[in-house]
């Protein structure tokens, strides 16, 4: 299971990558594996204000539907348009081409409340038990 060291993670299996006040958000490799084949994702439009851990969308695999939670507060500046026609990018490339949305962070300090890669690794191990 791939867990890149430079990202931060939620207990709901989202990741955020920080770059100059902009956070890119996606779901983890573990999450896409648990979901199975993703066939549909519902994402917010630019301009939408999200608070930390608010539901921002839905992701559907063949078998199930799950809600998506914002790792940090902020304003949506872009969602991944490529996923409309190729939702399978989330399975194939969860940390890169399968990203979900970009946020302009309201409070960069919130990132510190999220798990590091090491903590997330321990977390999914404890969840699996």
């Amino acid at each position: 299971m791939v867990i890149p060291p430079d990202l931060r993670y939620t207990k709901e299996h989202e990741w955020v990558r920080m770059d100059d006040g902009i956070g890119t958000v996606g779901i983890t490799d573990y999450a896409q594996d648990q979901l199975g084949d993703v066939v549909y994702v519902d994402l917010p439009s630019p301009g939408k204000q999200l608070s930390q851990l608010a539901v921002f969308g839905e992701i559907e695999s063949v078998k199930a539907v799950s809600e998506l939670y914002a790792p940090v507060s902020g304003e949506v500046i872009e969602s991944n348009g490529a996923l409309a026609d190729k939702p399978e990018l989330i399975n194939e490339s969860p940390y890169d081409e399968g990203w979900l949305m970009k946020l302009r962070l309201a409070d960069e300090g919130e990132v510190e409340k999220l798990m590091t890669a090491e903590q997330y690794s321990d977390f999914i191990e404890s969840e699996a038990e």
Binding site: E12, H13, E14, I27, A31, L35, E58, I59, V62, K63, A64, V65, S66, E67, L68, Y69
Partner: peptide, 11 residues
């Protein structure tokens, strides 16, 4: 990501 529903009674 949290479970919002499942595909029927399968599991």
């Amino acid at each position: 990501m949290g479970t919002a529903g499942r595909a029927g009674t399968m599991t």
